[in-house]
Amino acid sequence: MDADSGNFSAFEYEVAPWAMEVVLEYIKQSYGNPPVYILENGKPMKQDLQLQKKDTPRIEFLDAYIGAVLKAVRNGSDTRGYFVWSFMDLYELLSGYKFSFGLYSVNFSDPHRNRSPKLSAHWYSAFLKGNTTFLGSQGITRSQSNLSSS
Rank of each mutant, 00 (worst) to 15 (best):
A3W: 12
D4Q: 03
N7V: 06
F8V: 12
S9Y: 03
S9C: 08
Y13C: 03
A16W: 01
P17R: 03
P17D: 00
M20K: 01
E21N: 05
V22N: 10
V23Q: 13
V23T: 11
L24M: 10
Y26D: 10
K28F: 06
Q29I: 10
N33G: 01
P35N: 10
V36A: 07
V36K: 06
V36Q: 05
L39N: 12
E40Y: 09
G42D: 02
G42M: 07
G42I: 14
K43M: 15
P44L: 07
P44R: 01
K46W: 08
K46P: 10
D48A: 12
Q50G: 11
K53R: 14
K53M: 13
R58A: 02
R58N: 01
F61L: 03
L62M: 05
L62T: 02
A64F: 06
I66V: 08
L70W: 12
A72S: 10
G76K: 03
G76N: 09
G76Y: 02
G76L: 01
S77I: 07
D78P: 02
R80G: 06
G81N: 01
Y82H: 07
Y82K: 00
V84I: 15
V84W: 15
F87H: 02
F87Q: 02
L94T: 05
S95Y: 06
S95F: 05
S100Y: 03
S100V: 05
S100R: 10
Y104T: 01
S105V: 10
V106A: 00
V106H: 04
N107A: 08
D110H: 04
P111C: 01
H112G: 11
N114I: 07
R115N: 04
S116T: 11
P117R: 01
A121M: 06
A121W: 14
W123G: 08
Y124F: 14
Y124N: 02
S125T: 15
L128M: 13
K129T: 09
K129G: 07
G130Q: 10
G130A: 12
T133K: 08
T133P: 05
T133M: 12
F134V: 13
L135A: 12
L135T: 11
L135I: 14
Q138D: 14
G139V: 00
I140Q: 12
T141S: 13
S145L: 05
S145N: 09
S145E: 06
N146Y: 04
N146D: 05
L147H: 03
S148L: 14
S150I: 14
S150N: 11
